[in-house]
Amino acid sequence: MLATLSAAMLADTSGQALAHASAWAVFAVGAAMILTGAAGVILLRNPVHSALMLVVTLFGVALEFIDESADFLAAVQIIVYAGAVVILFLFVIMFLGVDRKEAIAAEPTKLQKPLAALMGLVVLVEILALSRVDHWASGAPAQSGVLNGPGDNVQKLGQAVYTGYLLPFEMTAALLVIAVVATVVLSKRSAGSPERSSQGDAELSGRAGDPEDSEVSL
């Protein structure tokens, strides 16, 4: 709805100011949702809460998609992410019973947290700095089809996917099949293997043998 509305506003020169204002409003709401959600994901200690905050972020992203007139993607974003992926997350959390609170403060390696924060900041700064660089975009006409031409978004997207991007599209199909098979194989319980073996514990935590033994000294 919003999309059609905004599209109509764009077409209508008289409603430019309104359209402008509404676009800003949508952007602001979406941005707020995104940032709140992201902060929630990384800061909340309960995984269930994190998952719910992820939903908020995903919805915010969908809003921004609408604002950028990517109607189809906005729909897909909500259906696939909010509808499937997050549900999957919640399902696993519940299924495994790991909805315990995590002690975020405790950290085995000291420098991990400050360095990680610093790195996030530096990445941000660098990306912003890079975005100031404009000579990478050639400004050449689009190759795979224009965005602003006649027809609605879904039609143009379908056109592109089933013509120019047919091969990658087919490959994603193959990828999905592989993912399905992989999931089945991974979750299949091998016959005779104990549920939680102490041996498996040792193996995974790297305590199977003292690594000092394998030293070669001259």
Partner: peptide
């Protein structure tokens, strides 16, 4: 620890990005 490795990758990325931004800028 996987996260240590990830951090190392991140730091490496930062360094590369820094180089690219300085050179490209």
């Amino acid at each position: 620890y996987v996260r240590n490795y990830a951090l190392a990758i991140g730091i490496g990325t930062v360094i590369v990005l820094f180089y690219v931004s300085v050179r490209a800028g």
